[in-house]
């Protein structure tokens, strides 16, 4: 469960998030929409612990993760996975190494098993030894998801994962994300510009506007985006 209480964040004079309160139950899938620059990514970064709020509290599974600017749980202990708009693959590691990075403390046999499973699940087994710069945009996105899922996060944050993909790749990715989210109990926070895309993955939808968060109605779920 993710709980935000009166979370505010400003950049300079501009207040991006204004006393936002929100509770996301375990296993819930929510979408955040809003125009460019409204603070969607900032909210994800606050949940992930990559940035700190100016005020307010963030709780993860009931445990206080942030109290104002003080971080109580560092990012790597939050069991949060984040898929960026760009894949942000580490260019000096091959696909396999990118995925294994998050399995640092796991015993070797378990790591190999997890790697094989995750590669199979994301359809990237054939890419295991390839370097990121040799992959297509869609392949990079798949690997990024594989890398995020490998450490088995409890919360999955996705920041416009379908942006800048061609139609075929979008459909493939959408199917992959849907498969992952529907077959697990991960909490999903999905950021997008597009209301319909949000509806295809999520049960609840919020719009961020003027620093405030407001629920919106969820259109009928569609099979593809």
């Amino acid at each position: 469960m993710i709980t935000l209480m009166n979370v505010s964040k400003s950049f300079g004079e501009k207040k991006i998030l204004d006393a936002i309160s929100l509770t996301i139950n375990t296993g819930a899938r929510i979408a955040l929409t809003g125009v460019s620059g409204c603070g969607k990514t900032t909210l994800l970064r606050l949940i992930a612990g990559l940035d700190v709020p100016d005020e307010g509290e963030i709780k993860l599974s009931g445990e206080l993760a942030n109290f104002g600017t003080e971080i109580r749980i560092p990012p790597h202990r939050r069991k949060v996975g984040l898929v960026f708009q760009s894949s942000a693959l580490w260019p000096h590691m091959n696909v396999e190494q990118n995925i294994l990075f998050g399995l640092g403390g796991t015993p070797k046999t378990r790591r190999i098993e997890t790697l094989d499973a995750i590669l199979a699940r994301t359809g990237t087994t054939h890419l295991a030894k390839r370097m990121p710069d040799t992959l297509s945009g869609g392949e990079q996105r798949r690997v990024a998801i594989a890398r995020t899922l490998a450490p088995e996060p409890e919360i999955l944050l996705m920041d416009e994962p379908l942006t800048n993909l061609d139609l075929a790749a979008r459909e493939e990715m959408a199917a992959l994300i849907r498969g992952i989210t529907e077959s697990s109990v991960m909490t999903l926070v999905y950021v997008t510009h597009e209301v319909e895309e949000a509806a295809s993955f999520c049960d609840e939808q919020y719009i961020l506007k003027g620093g405030k968060l407001a629920p919106t109605s969820v259109p009928r779920r569609r099979k593809s985006t």
Binding site: H76, L82, A88, W90, H92, G102
Partner: peptide
Amino acid sequence: VDSRLFDVGRLVRPDIDAFRLIVLPL
């Protein structure tokens, strides 16, 4: 170094590992 590369690493490993294994080589 693109700071997002560090950010992604920070989520799964301690910051020092992400710095040592991702930022420094880049």
